[in-house]
């Protein structure tokens, strides 16, 4: 029980990742799929942020008066912060591209349902063969 309480954010992150993954696989609506993907990404950021946290410390920004005698034990780990930053940038860019594909698909097929789109494409294929 104690380990469960102590690693709470990581547990939450993994459950969120599962929720996002199942949403991605099960949702038919493309926008919902994209939301699932975003939940997955966010859960990874939560995991990383939890990994960087250290009890009783402050953000990794020193003051001018500290220079020369900085004690690293007073600050949280700066590395995960950088990694989360990268992750956020990647997630934003990917979401933008996905949404633009959805806009184009909607213009082309007038639906957001991926199954429906595949059905229309198959039908076109069959008409092509005849």
């Amino acid at each position: 029980m104690s380990i469960f309480l102590s690693n709470m954010p990581e547990y939450a992150a993994m459950i969120l990742f599962g929720i996002g993954l199942s949403n991605l696989m099960l949702a038919k609506n493309l926008i919902k799929k994209i939301i699932g993907l975003n939940i997955m990404d966010t859960s990874v950021f939560l995991f990383l942020a939890a990994k960087g946290y250290v009890d009783n410390t402050i953000a990794p920004i020193v003051t001018v008066s500290d220079l020369g005698h900085i004690d690293s034990a007073l600050y949280t780990n700066p590395v995960p912060a950088g990694l989360v930053l990268t992750g956020i940038v990647v997630s934003v860019s990917v979401t933008a591209v996905l949404l633009s594909i959805v806009v184009r698909l909607n213009e082309e097929f007038h639906t957001l349902d991926i199954d429906e789109i595949i059905r229309i494409l198959r039908k076109r294929d069959r008409e092509d063969l005849q």
Partner: peptide, 25 residues
């Protein structure tokens, strides 16, 4: 930019992103 490539790239992109999500974890 035609219907086939758009639908195909959507599927490709989503599969790839799941892959990179697992890689990141």
């Amino acid at each position: 930019e035609d219907g086939y490539t758009l639908a195909a790239s959507m599927r490709y992109f989503i599969m790839s992103l799941v892959g990179s999500g697992l890689f990141l974890i």
